[in-house]
């Protein structure tokens, strides 16, 4: 049972969390092309590597960011979301 560290509540069993997908920036829906929009909606980056992901600690409803190396299944760090980049 993997451990995920909530920035507010500390390390917990991963069963206390929900995964929210990789953090991706939304192209401007008012100006981007149909293809760019469809790519954003349906395509995901499947290659292994370090990803910034949304995670939610369910008992406290805390959304935060985890940087996870999906190739080695190692969570590098977790922190509260502070904006893009």
């Amino acid at each position: 049972m993997k451990i995920m560290t909530c920035p507010v509540n500390g390390p917990r069993a991963i069963s206390e969390f929900a995964y929210g997908g990789e953090i991706r920036s939304m192209p401007d829906p008012a100006t981007c092309s149909d293809d760019e929009w469809a790519d954003y909606v349906f395509n995901r980056n499947g290659s292994p590597g370090v990803k910034r992901e949304w995670w939610c600690h369910l008992p406290s409803n805390t959304w935060f960011v985890a940087e996870r190396d999906t190739a080695r299944d190692v969570v590098l760090r977790t922190y509260l979301y502070e904006g893009e980049g």
Binding site: N9, R12, S15, E16, H57, L58, P59, S60
Partner: peptide, 11 residues
């Protein structure tokens, strides 16, 4: 204060 689940219930 611990926010967690016990027996599957949020507590």
């Amino acid at each position: 204060v611990v926010l967690t689940t016990m027996a599957g219930v949020t507590v």
